[in-house]
């Protein structure tokens, strides 16, 4: 979509551009997740710049970046924090874990045990954690950017499908193009550009943007369109589990954020169609036989989009 970009967002994107060659779309989608108060799952092989991307983003918004490197022996307390008995105070003192930050980079989330994974995912959903019966609210903004190796790799614990639902978007980073990669080499020759990165937006401003996004107008017809799409994924012949209502909500939020990034105060069907693969793909489970026939989820989503008619008139229920 050739569209204008919100000037504040543009600065952030520009900043990321300095560090990561190309990948504007990934950067934009990351911002969608951030601004929609959601979380992002990046799925790709190591070494394509996932971590660099998150670091650049957090540096741009002057947020505190916490990084958790997930390993098979990582424990939930390593994520959430731990209460340790302080003999001087005669009391347990809570030492917050890395989850108590603004931006959390959960690296290779699928390499740790489900137990630890669920500790993180619970925090993501509830915006609070409970340790030893005490509930701690997480900071605002709270943005988890998880990366995971594709499931084909050995020694991983695939995230349960139900938990994937917690992520607003899931996307692939993808290899850079040839030119981009050459550019990457040139940039990496001397000092890493990330060290010279300055914040372009304060956390306060980011909070404000997040509030503004909630004001983006979603027409009745667009809400209907989203629900139509979701319900079509549920009834699709190749789908075992379709998009949940939570998925529909996620779509609405994401599309609002995208419209806002494009400096629009209303959501277009184009926004929804654009976001559909990123919002819906990880919320759909294909039937085993369809998987056996190598049906791709992306194809299913494309079919659903082409089947649901875009509302082009007011007050006319043109739905089957």
């Amino acid at each position: 979509m050739t569209n204008r970009i919100h000037p504040g967002i543009k600065k952030i994107l520009h900043n990321i551009e300095k560090v990561i060659a190309g990948k504007q779309e990934v950067a934009k989608l990351s911002l969608v997740a951030l601004l929609a108060d959601g979380h992002l799952l990046l799925e790709d092989v190591p070494g394509v710049g996932k971590t660099m991307m998150v670091r650049a983003l957090s540096k741009s918004i002057s947020a505190e970046l916490r990084r958790i490197q997930f390993t098979p022996d990582l424990l939930p307390s390593d994520v959430m924090g731990v209460s340790i008995y302080n003999p001087r105070d005669m009391d347990f003192q809570f030492y917050p874990g890395p989850i108590m930050g603004n931006i959390i980079l959960a690296d290779e989330i699928n390499r740790t045990s489900p137990k630890t994974q669920s500790a993180l995912l619970e925090g993501m959903e509830e915006n609070s954690i409970t340790v030893d019966g005490v509930t701690y609210n997480l900071e605002k903004p709270f943005f988890v950017m998880a990366t995971q190796n594709p499931i084909e790799y050995e020694g991983t614990y695939p995230l349960p499908e139900a938990q994937l639902d917690r992520f607003l978007l899931k996307m692939k980073m993808g290899y850079p193009t040839l030119d981009e990669e050459i550019d990457v080499l040139q940039r990496a020759q001397k000092v890493s550009p990330i060290d010279n990165l300055h914040p372009v937006i304060s956390l306060q401003e980011l909070r404000q943007l997040q509030l503004d996004i909630k004001e983006v107008y979603v027409d009745e017809s667009m809400r209907r369109y989203i629900v139509e799409l979701s319900s079509h994924t549920r009834s699709h012949e190749n789908v075992f589990l379709g998009v949940s209502p939570r998925g529909s909500i996620a779509m609405m939020k994401a599309s609002q954020a995208l419209a806002f990034i494009h400096e629009r105060d209303y959501v277009l069907p184009d926004d929804i169609q654009y976001l559909a693969p990123f919002v819906f793909a990880h919320r759909i489970i294909l039937r085993p036989e369809a998987r056996f026939e190598r049906v791709q989820i992306e194809d299913v989503i494309e079919q659903v989009i082409s089947r649901v008619s875009v509302p082009i008139q007011k007050h006319v229920a043109k739905y089957e």
Binding site: M1, L268, P269, Q273, S306, V310, I312
Partner: peptide, 20 residues
Amino acid sequence: LLTQLERCGLKRKAGQTLRE
């Protein structure tokens, strides 16, 4: 105009947004 375009054989596909 949309109907007229359709008559010319330039039918909009159901899933196609107006912008496309």
